[in-house]
Design a protein around this nucleic acid. Sequence first.
RNA 1: GUCCCCGUCGUCUAGGCCGGCCUAGGACACCGCCCUUUCACGGCGAUAACACGGGUUCAAAUCCCGUCGGGGACGCCA
Length: 500
Amino acid sequence: MPDENPSARTSPRVRFAPSPTGFLHVGSARTFIFNWLYARHNHGTMVLRIDDTDVERNTEASVQSIFDGLRWLGLNWDEEYRQSERLALHRKAAEAIFARGLAYRDFTPAHADDEHPSGVQGAWLFNPGMREMSREESDRRAAAGERFALRYRVPRGSGAAAARTLRFADGVYGEQTKPADEVEDFALLRSDGMPTYHLASCFDDADLGISHIIRGQDHLTNTFKHLLIFEALGVAIPNFSMPQFAHLPLLVAPDGSKLSKRKHGPVVSVTTYRDAGFLPQAFINFLCLLGWSPKNDREYLTLEELVGLFSLEGVNRANAVINFTEEVPFDDKAVWLNAEHIRALPVEELAQELEPIFKQAGFNAPREKVLAVTPLIRERIKLLREAVAAADFLFVDELAPYDPAELIPQKGDAAMARRVLETAKEVLAVASFDHDSLDKALRAAAAQLGLKAGQAFQPIRVAVCGRKNAPPLFETLVVLGREACLKRIGQALEKSASLG
RNA sequence: GUCCCCGUCGUCUAGGCCGGCCUAGGACACCGCCCUUUCACGGCGAUAACACGGGUUCAAAUCCCGUCGGGGACGCCA
């Protein structure tokens, strides 16, 4: 079959274009992930472009922190650009638009930051006197060194003639239209000669052949401006075709407001999740479920499954709130998913994640030991960091002080605790240290003492772990080894003396 | 203020485009029970929502209008 529409056949090119004004924001991360998923699902190309045209606000530290976040996610990109390196291209594009009469110079002094340009009367459209200024006067003033911004001359209806209607089909929000009359004469170049976001972003998207622009819904109304820029730019770019747009619902805070670094603090930074012990695949899984659904009730999804399932049709239109409070900084569902992903990890891989964390906590944690400890805590931690508190007694030489009363079993007394510990000491001195042997020996000892297993095990558990809530007893004893067990039971016996 | 978007359990969502299968499904969280040597895992169960008002229709969460609520855009920020 002949290929009638070659452009529809070429693989999609998508981009993620963060501006380096802070750390990588969870909302940005989700935008990145959706773009990445779209690219991988459709065998397309993922472009990373650092939108650093705002020299005032951009910092190199921020660029690094964005890379930190992206590297942690582990999703690779195929091409990488820096907008600041393409400045000359942007200026040339602006000049070309001006030369064609599609833009004009605006000599109005820039607004101060606190001045809101849109009055209470309605939307601001353009500054009086500038749009109509003759080319001669404009040239003369520019030549005289007067500063100006370059504004796009948005087509407007004149007299009885209605303005044209701008339209595009959004991949998520559907058909969008707006009369050009309602679009303000936005700036292309600032009075310092720097391109604005709108110009730089559209030029690069067109020049880099981006086929699908997937971004936050806060750009939905900006898209009408972008349509105009693309139109003006397109004529100079061979084989240009208008990109498809898809806007993503916003991620909002529990109070419904837009997530912001300033207002909500570190919980909006992806490195906070990393440092708290989230697995990147769990974090990705969680973010995907915010504003997107595979529509088959599945929630725990691996990266491969996400790639296979992802489509723009599954994207929701309503904003999604990401739940957090000061006491509980992470969304319950994110934590649950993380626990699921932790349990799904093979022991060797989980051990590998845990090893640096144990070492950081100051534990003597050789590989073999971590490998032995991991199965004991795998089902007891929801965040990797919790492994430290869950397994500390398996690493330290001396147990942290605990209340001797903990040694007393249910429906028992101090004497019973001591009897159990004495017996355990004898049994463990000779028993072979593997799960089944210990199970057999200790159960037999309990029976001999006339106690229920649970009653007999509690003093031993507390003696060995220093607390009541701990992993299963026999596995714990095995990992700890005979020497440590006997020593701790001996210490417990001493402690129990104070119980009278 | 103007324009745009959105509104299903506390939260994430399915269902909505193609009205009846929805006495609205799933998940997290919460509560209860079971399993069990503690904790955890696992299993089972319970509570919980179509923002409101009109209309269209034999029939509306689903279509239409309005109201209210939330959000976004309106910068020489991105």
